[in-house]
Deep mutational scan, measured.
Amino acid sequence: MRDETLEPLPKNWEMAYTDTGMIYFIDHNTKTTTWLDPRLCKK
């Protein structure tokens, strides 16, 4: 489920979907991926 109230992704981040429809996030700065939304992981 998407939460439209979240702010935009940080610079150089992208949201993508797996072949089965699961959301993951791509950090183009470090060339890594994560299941965790970077907008929710702020310190």
Rank of each mutant, 00 (worst) to 15 (best):
residue 1 M to I: 08
residue 1 M to S: 12
residue 2 R to W: 07
residue 3 D to M: 08
residue 3 D to I: 07
residue 3 D to A: 10
residue 3 D to Y: 05
residue 4 E to W: 03
residue 4 E to L: 10
residue 4 E to P: 10
residue 4 E to S: 12
residue 4 E to Y: 05
residue 4 E to R: 10
residue 5 T to F: 04
residue 5 T to N: 15
residue 5 T to H: 12
residue 5 T to D: 13
residue 5 T to G: 12
residue 5 T to V: 12
residue 6 L to W: 10
residue 6 L to K: 09
residue 6 L to E: 13
residue 6 L to D: 11
residue 6 L to T: 14
residue 6 L to R: 13
residue 6 L to P: 11
residue 6 L to Y: 08
residue 7 E to R: 11
residue 7 E to L: 09
residue 7 E to D: 10
residue 7 E to I: 07
residue 7 E to T: 11
residue 8 P to A: 12
residue 8 P to L: 08
residue 8 P to M: 06
residue 8 P to Y: 04
residue 8 P to V: 08
residue 9 L to E: 03
residue 10 P to W: 01
residue 10 P to L: 02
residue 10 P to E: 04
residue 10 P to Q: 03
residue 11 K to F: 07
residue 11 K to V: 10
residue 11 K to A: 13
residue 11 K to M: 08
residue 11 K to S: 11
residue 11 K to N: 09
residue 12 N to D: 11
residue 12 N to W: 04
residue 13 W to L: 02
residue 13 W to C: 02
residue 13 W to F: 07
residue 14 E to S: 09
residue 14 E to I: 04
residue 14 E to P: 00
residue 14 E to L: 04
residue 14 E to G: 07
residue 14 E to R: 06
residue 14 E to F: 00
residue 15 M to W: 06
residue 15 M to K: 13
residue 15 M to V: 10
residue 15 M to C: 10
residue 15 M to S: 12
residue 16 A to Q: 09
residue 16 A to T: 06
residue 16 A to V: 07
residue 16 A to N: 05
residue 17 Y to K: 13
residue 17 Y to T: 15
residue 17 Y to D: 05
residue 17 Y to M: 09
residue 18 T to K: 03
residue 18 T to A: 08
residue 18 T to G: 06
residue 18 T to P: 00
residue 18 T to W: 02
residue 18 T to R: 01
residue 18 T to E: 04
residue 19 D to V: 09
residue 19 D to W: 04
residue 19 D to G: 10
residue 19 D to Q: 12
residue 19 D to E: 14
residue 20 T to G: 13
residue 20 T to Y: 06
residue 20 T to C: 11
residue 20 T to W: 05
residue 20 T to I: 06
residue 21 G to R: 07
residue 21 G to L: 02
residue 22 M to L: 13
residue 22 M to K: 15
residue 22 M to G: 14
residue 23 I to W: 06
residue 23 I to K: 15
residue 23 I to A: 15
residue 24 Y to I: 01
residue 24 Y to F: 09
residue 24 Y to K: 02
residue 24 Y to C: 02
residue 24 Y to T: 02
residue 24 Y to R: 02
residue 25 F to R: 01
residue 25 F to N: 00
residue 25 F to T: 02
residue 25 F to P: 01
residue 25 F to A: 01
residue 26 I to S: 02
residue 26 I to L: 10
residue 26 I to C: 05
residue 26 I to Q: 03
residue 27 D to H: 04
residue 28 H to D: 03
residue 28 H to G: 06
residue 28 H to T: 07
residue 28 H to Q: 06
residue 29 N to C: 09
residue 30 T to A: 09
residue 30 T to P: 00
residue 30 T to V: 04
residue 30 T to Q: 09
residue 31 K to M: 11
residue 31 K to N: 08
residue 31 K to E: 13
residue 31 K to G: 10
residue 31 K to R: 14
residue 31 K to F: 08
residue 32 T to H: 04
residue 32 T to M: 11
residue 32 T to D: 03
residue 33 T to G: 03
residue 33 T to K: 04
residue 33 T to A: 05
residue 33 T to E: 04
residue 33 T to L: 03
residue 33 T to R: 05
residue 34 T to V: 00
residue 34 T to G: 02
residue 34 T to D: 01
residue 35 W to D: 05
residue 35 W to S: 07
residue 35 W to A: 06
residue 35 W to K: 05
residue 36 L to H: 13
residue 36 L to M: 14
residue 36 L to V: 13
residue 36 L to R: 14
residue 37 D to E: 03
residue 37 D to K: 04
residue 37 D to Q: 03
residue 37 D to C: 04
residue 37 D to V: 00
residue 37 D to A: 04
residue 37 D to S: 08
residue 38 P to M: 01
residue 38 P to K: 00
residue 38 P to W: 00
residue 38 P to V: 00
residue 38 P to Q: 00
residue 39 R to M: 05
residue 39 R to C: 05
residue 39 R to V: 06
residue 39 R to S: 06
residue 40 L to G: 13
residue 40 L to M: 11
residue 40 L to E: 15
residue 40 L to D: 13
residue 40 L to S: 12
residue 40 L to W: 08
residue 41 C to V: 15
residue 41 C to R: 13
residue 41 C to G: 14
residue 41 C to K: 14
residue 41 C to P: 15
residue 42 K to D: 14
residue 42 K to G: 14
residue 42 K to Y: 07
residue 42 K to N: 08
residue 42 K to A: 14
residue 43 K to D: 15
residue 43 K to L: 14
residue 43 K to G: 15
residue 43 K to I: 09
residue 43 K to P: 15
